[in-house]
Structure formats: structure tokens, C-alpha cells
Design a binder for these strands. Structure first.
Lengths: 340, 340
DNA sequence: CGGAATCTTGCAATCGTTTGCAATTGACCA
DNA sequence: TGGTCAATTGCAAACGATTGCAAGATTCCG
């Protein structure tokens, strides 16, 4: 009889227990590395487990322990559905997040949602019982909904902009300061009439714009011209060209909400024969890899993506442990290259 | 007594059943939308569920039904650990995958693994019991291990290169054909001595190289010069510069394994004062967004990433349903811009 | 009005693992 | 030898949802 059993596949802890001649409970303890089981028993169990390639079922384990070992990462596609596909910033952040979470022994469950068509996107994710905590990448235009949730749910950390007095724990660059740095640089490079390229309904972008505005006002310069633009490269290209037709001669400095937009602007400017930084100065945001490769290379405001990911995971783990954590605001860094 | 209950949170199907005055089984059926329950009963149950924001626990459901509704997506970081962070190709593919899987009602569990330090990365993922199927993004140098698994595990689809007679189901561009197209274009643009920029230990890149070689041999041209390069921008930049010092004067056409590498090469060439395409012609691969934005814009071989993602998900679902599916090879498309 | 057929519902086992509690074993000491 | 104590192990009840089976309730027809 034992012979027959040896041939059968080991599908659960009970099968394995039978093979090892112990009870399921002991197998569970052995595989979990608890100190209660005898060394020899453990070795035997581990040997059989290895031989049969057995791994305890995470679903069952999760159900019993009431924790899954999975962190949810959700990307709300708020004001601009195709945004994140084109924007390598979020994807890079996601890569670092995956690394950090793995290092901490967590798995990552990724979900992209369209809040407009799915109003309770966040409740659904949290309520599924599949995740121990959630990281929201980008507030987009969902600030209020996130605030609502934060009221009753602890293990959530958000990447985005910090607003005075907000409830939810956020990690992000000081966008307003970054905006100031950008404007200061543009002005130092000789610009007098600035424009902001990007859609300010996204709260992060609004803060960058506000920062730049601070400087413009302080310096007594004419107020900035807003050039709202979608983030998908196809649409943005045209929109930028249109903006330049309308305002190209009035402005001598552009602050782009994103390096991606800045790169597109650079192309559009070249096509119109506008010299950068001679006629128009240009500053981007993010310091993505592309910023080094444009011609001329882009002056930009750097966000430390790796540090951001580390911060997100770190705070989330502390919240998982019951801490009540503060938000983390990272300093932006002006990187001067050749466009301003 | 009912009054007290009304106030308590509804944490499971049993609580809800008590509130609704029915049995847990009925609640389960109602929430699952089965036709067996009376319309009025269902409405009542749904109303209470909505009121309390109750959602059935996915872990428990998964355990009982023996399926999780989660698809694993794993990125092996094989020959070049930092690869995928810089390479937006994989990240874009991931974005489309997330969309497709969501549309089919599946969640996506993402895992990045380093096979060198974690030999049974694939077994572990599959054996965890957390996923119904797995999509492997990129064979890297793990072809053999993937073959091993495919022998006994059905619901797996791999993005990568198709090799004659292989076991595992793969979706990918015809890299060899793409390589041919690239070489033909370089030669048509006047190149006589070609070089291949990239690391051919990755099987996909090896196929691109082989395709280009086909053409070179057929035309009776001198054989290609290999310029092995890592994919991370920091290292690649230097390596490319070194290559150009060593071979820059001998070659008049470069086929880069990736647009990312091509863009770096373009920068390096400009720095040396080499005219493109005047002195050296250049063709990339992928047609990433960056290909439009280099100066001059990049001639490249386009991979249809969206179609790839659709194919991966489609095949996986069919395999989940028990089909034995064939691999899917997508046609590459030469996009002629200005570098060749 | 009786009986068969059709709807709804409840019951209880099941998925695979974990863990508090109790029982067994052996060691050790007086 | 008896008794105490620690080290191991087994037992069985959870975790929360699903589902085959059977019972109860309705309907329908002649």
C-alpha cells in the first residue's frame, strides 16, 4: 500500500503527511520552519517535499491565516485613458516596486482601472480579500475617492502629490518645488514669457504649474500661458504643433509637465525652425532616459523613482504592521543639460 | 436582535445570510448570478450586499472552486539583470497585457525573477496555487527550463522566439524575418559592411542576427561584425562608444537589436561626428515611441505589441479551456524613416 | 382535488492549510 | 522508582465560499 502511495502525486499536505508517516499538522509546521518540530522529522519531510516538488497551496494558507502575501498595485487611468501606456515614468516605477516587494517577500497584483466606468474601483480591489494592502500609482483626478477610502482602511499608500491636511498617506516628489526650480532655470536662461505645457486637471501637474507661477509672480513677469495637452504621443504631437502656431512667437520659455511632452515639443520646435535654447528655452520633468537622448539633451527636473518605490513599500509595510505613518515628500533635483 | 445585527459589519456570506434570513448557500448562488434563486430573494440579497459594501472573499472562493481568476505574468531577468527596467518594450507589452486580461475578467500577478539565483522560478510560481495560468515575458536564456515545464503543464504561453519543433506555446515576432528586412534595407541604402549591435545570447536577438546574416551571405558581402552590448543605458553607452572606436571606420551599416540601443548608437555616432545615414546607416528594432523622436528619426523594424498581447491572452484562455494550441508568429514590418 | 412536475431553498461536505489544546514520549532528578 | 518538565506530535476546529443532493413549496393539469 505504501508503494502505491509513493507513486501518486503529492497534491496537498495530507498526502505528504501520509508518505512521511506523520500528521498534516506536523508537515505544516515543518514546512513553515517552526521550531517545534524535531530536526530529523523536519529533514525527512523536507526531503519528500523536494522530491515531489510540493509547495503548500497559497490560497488555503491565505484563507486560514487571513493574509495573502500579495500587495495590490492599482493604476487609475483617470483623465487620460491611454496615458500610462506611453508614459514610461509609471512603468519604471512599477518595475522598481516589483523589485522592492519581491525583496520583502510579497507578490504584486497589478490592476489598471478606469474610474469613470468603474466608480468603486478601489473598494472592489480592497474588498476582494486577495491583497494585504494596496499601492495606488497616481492620484490622477481621483483624490476625493482615495480620501474616502483612507478614512477606514489603513494599509494603503499612494504615489502622488501631497496636499496640506490630506488624510491618505502619500509618497511623491515635491512638485511645487520642482515647478519653482524649473521656472527659475528658465528665467535664469533668459526667458521672460513662460508657458506651461500639460493638463492641469491632474493634481500633480497642477502643483508643478503652481510652483512655476510662484516664481513668475515673485519676479513680476507676465503670467504663464497654459498649453493643455493630452499625454498620448499621437494626440500630443498635434496639439503641441497647434499651440506653437497660436503662441509660438509670444513665448520664450516652456515648462513641460513631463519629459515625454518636452521631447515632443523639441521635435515640433525644430520642425518650425525655432532654436532651442536660443529662441525658446525648454525644461522638462522626470529625467527619464529619453532626456539624455534628445538633441540637444534636455534640462529637466529629476524625480528619484527608485527612492519613491522604496518609500512606498517601506511605508506600506509599516502600516501593515499597524503604524500610523506620515507622508513622504521627496526633493526634486534640477538637472541642467542644454535646453535651458 | 436583528437590530443589533444590522449594525455589525458583514464580513462573510454567513453574516449576510443571517441578515437576509436565508442560508449561506442561497446567498452564494444569488451573488454568483445563478438562475436558481428566486428573483425577489436575489434582489433582497443584492440590496443588503450593496448597502454593506460586501464582496465575497476571493481566496475562499478560489480554494473551493480550484481556480483563482488570476493569471501570472513573469519576467525572467536572465542574461542582463537591469534589462527590463530600461527597455520600455516589455513594459508596454505588460500594459497591454493588463488591459487584455482585465477585459477577460482576470487579474494579473506580476513577478520578476532572477533565474540565476532562483533556479526553480517557474515551478515555484506555478506551484503556488495562486494562479490559473502563466505568461512568460521573454525567454531570455531560459529556453530549456521553459521547455521542461511545458512538458507537464498546459496553461502557459511565452512571449519570444519560435524555434522549430519546440514544445512550449510561444507568441512573438518573426525575428529572423525582421533581421532580414533590416539587413536588406541597410544594403539597399548603400551599406556593404554590416555590424550587429546587441547580445546574441538572448535567443530573440540571436534570431535577428541570423536573419541579417542570411541576407549578407546571400549577397556575398563580408560577414557581419558582432558588437555585443548590455541593455542598460549606462553600460551600453560606453560599450557602444568603445565599439565605435574599434570598428567605426570599418563599417557602414549598423543593425541594432533594439531601438533603445539604436538611439544610443545615434548619440554616440553624432559625438564622433559620423553622419547618419551618410557615413553609416542604422536600423533599429521594435518601433518604440523613441524611434520617432531621434534626430534623424529611426528606420526600424516594427513589432505589433498590442497584437502580441492579444495573442498571448487569447492563446492562454484557449489553453485554459483545454485546447492544445499552436504557436503564433507575427509578421514584423519595416518602417522606413531617415537613418537608412 | 390528487398527483406530477417545476421552482426554491437548506443541509452539509469539501477545498488545503494553520494552530490552540491536549496527549504522548522521553529525559532527568531526587 | 515515581514524578516533574520539556520536547514533539496528533486532533480537530477554524478560515469563507461553493455545490450535489434532497426536501419543501408552488404550480399546473386532468
Amino acid at each position: 500500500m505504501p508503494d502505491r502511495d509513493t507513486k501518486g502525486a503529492v497534491r496537498n499536505i495530507t498526502d505528504l503527511a501520509r508518505l512521511a508517516g506523520v500528521s498534516p499538522g506536523t508537515v505544516s509546521r515543518a514546512l513553515a520552519g517552526k521550531s517545534l518540530v524535531n530536526a530529523k522529522t523536519r529533514e525527512k519531510i523536507e526531503a519528500i517535499a523536494r522530491e515531489h516538488g510540493f509547495r503548500p497551496n497559497q490560497m488555503a494558507s491565505g484563507l486560514r491565516r487571513q493574509k495573502t502575501g500579495v500587495i495590490g498595485v492599482v493604476i487609475p487611468l483617470g483623465h487620460d485613458t491611454r496615458q500610462q501606456i506611453s508614459d514610461s515614468f509609471f512603468m519604471t516605477l512599477l518595475g522598481f516596486l516589483a523589485d522592492e516587494l519581491t525583496r520583502e517577500g510579497y507578490d504584486l497584483m497589478l490592476r489598471r482601472v478606469v474610474p469613470e466606468t468603474d466608480p468603486d474601483w478601489l473598494d472592489r480591489f480592497i474588498g476582494s480579500g486577495m491583497i494585504d494592502g494596496v499601492i495606488v500609482i497616481g492620484q490622477s483626478d481621483q483624490f476625493d475617492r482615495i480620501e474616502d477610502i483612507a478614512d477606514g482602511y489603513g494599509p494603503m499608500v499612494v504615489w502622488g502629490n501631497h496636499t496640506e491636511g490630506q488624510l491618505h498617506c502619500v509618497v511623491g516628489t515635491d512638485n511645487r518645488l520642482g515647478g519653482r526650480q524649473a521656472a527659475e532655470r528658465l528665467i535664469a536662461a533668459g526667458a521672460k514669457q513662460l508657458a506651461f505645457l500639460g493638463d492641469t486637471t491632474a493634481i500633480e501637474f497642477a502643483a508643478r504649474f503652481a510652483g512655476a507661477n510662484d516664481v513668475v509672480r515673485r519676479m513680476g513677469l507676465p503670467s504663464m500661458i497654459e498649453l493643455p495637452t493630452h499625454l498620448s504621443p499621437e494626440r500630443a504631437g498635434e496639439e503641441i504643433a497647434d499651440h506653437l502656431v497660436a503662441h509660438g512667437d509670444d513665448i520664450d520659455g516652456i515648462f513641460a509637465a513631463t519629459d515625454t511632452l518636452a521631447a515632443l515639443a523639441l521635435t515640433a520646435l525644430r520642425e518650425r525652425g525655432v532654436a532651442v535654447p536660443g529662441d525658446i528655452r525648454l525644461v522638462g520633468f522626470d529625467d527619464l532616459p529619453i532626456a539624455r537622448q534628445t538633441v540637444p539633451p534636455l534640462t529637466t527636473v529629476r524625480q528619484d523613482i527608485a527612492a519613491g518605490a522604496r518609500g512606498l513599500v517601506d511605508l506600506l509595510l509599516r502600516r501593515l504592521a499597524g503604524d500610523k505613518t506620515e507622508s513622504l515628500v521627496l526633493p526634486p533635483e534640477l538637472v541642467i543639460r542644454e535646453t535651458a
